[in-house]
Amino acid sequence: MIPPTYYLLLAAVVFSIGVFGILTRRNALIFLMAVELMLNAANINLIAFSQFYGNLTGQTFALFTMALAAAEVAVGIGIILVLFRNFTGVDVTEAATMRW
């Protein structure tokens, strides 16, 4: 059994990469992918602890996270397509008409 600390560190790396992507990129599609990376990091933690403590709550919760991620992507793609139609591009810094 691999120590869960290793998986915690792996998940921390993946989550930080997702945060970095959201902070630096301007393409809305990259935002969506970075959010997927962060959700996957959370899933790695849930499943690592599920195996460590011999309790299936983590695995079941990871399945719910996946369902929510699918819903989030469906709405996110819709929003990106509306963004593309209204601003003819997916650059999130261009959509500033509601900025005050």
Binding site: A67, L68, A70, A71, E72, A74, V75, I77, G78, I79, L81, V82
Partner: peptide
Amino acid sequence: VVLVAALVAAVMLA
């Protein structure tokens, strides 16, 4: 319910 709501919302947005 959340999945159904999300899919309806995606259709509405598109």
